[in-house]
Design a protein around this nucleic acid. Sequence first.
DNA 1: AAATTCCCCAACCGCACGATA
DNA 2: ATATCGTGCGGTTGGGGAATT
Length: 277
Amino acid sequence: MEARRKGKGISRKRSWRSEEDEILIKYIKRNGLGNWNLVGKNSGLSRDGKSCRLRWLNHLQPGLKKNLPFSEKEKLVIFSEHAVLGNKWSDIARHLPGRTDNEIKNFMNIHKKKCLKNGVISIYPPEISMRYTHNGITEFPKIASSGDHDSVVHQLVELMDLPSIQNTEKDVIDILLSPYLHNPHGSFELLPQPHLAGAHQSWNTSFNVLSSEQCSNLSIADLLYSDYSMDDDLDCWLQFISSSGWEETSLPLQSRLLREYTASASGIFDPNQTMVW
DNA sequence: AAATTCCCCAACCGCACGATA
DNA sequence: ATATCGTGCGGTTGGGGAATT
């Protein structure tokens, strides 16, 4: 009635009361799991079978880790499986005892939303996305959310305020990557981009300089997690690039060139420094 | 303190698929 | 072969508490 008065129509949602839960649990204890439609009809609940099934699976069945936040290990499993399976929530849930598909779906949807809001393109932590980097080529991780591919790319284009490019993933990636390719110290660095402010915070990690080997194995996703600002010495770097035949070289060779260059650079960069997450 | 906005998560919807009649 | 039913799945919605103004 309240909803109707507010002109929003009648709400379809009705939360389960504890009395209803008790009835459902008793019914299933007595009759076992079987035909959910019969549960709806015979339990005395004014709920349909689907609703009963959902309530049981997501909240009442034994062994659920209800009210326990996902552990870091569980999160890693989710990301790892999602990178392979995509939105196959029930398949992912099979790897996590006590967790439901709905729970995982909610977690990922919230996570994706945060990534999108913060301008983080890769939804996966680097340790996951690096797994899918082979021979220097990374399969770009799935981005965000609902909607078809084009609409996702369109979202990105809007989000990143890139007005005049084609709506293709390649164009978006090219533009996203371009700032990194001009770093003079052998580490890939991110140009100042206000729309990416705070992006690195999503993993609660710190990101130090990468060694050149690490750079050569980096994925787009990993690059997008860095939060370094552009170095002033751009001209020097560009000069090095143009004289090195960089464009024609293979990734391993580029890696070596980077190493050589950084070794001769001002000492800001330590080629042996490791990445800290 | 009150109003508003944000965010999370439980509940719902529609569709696909397999089993059965 | 096909109609019906039950189940499972993924996408979406909206209630309500938390955070912010």
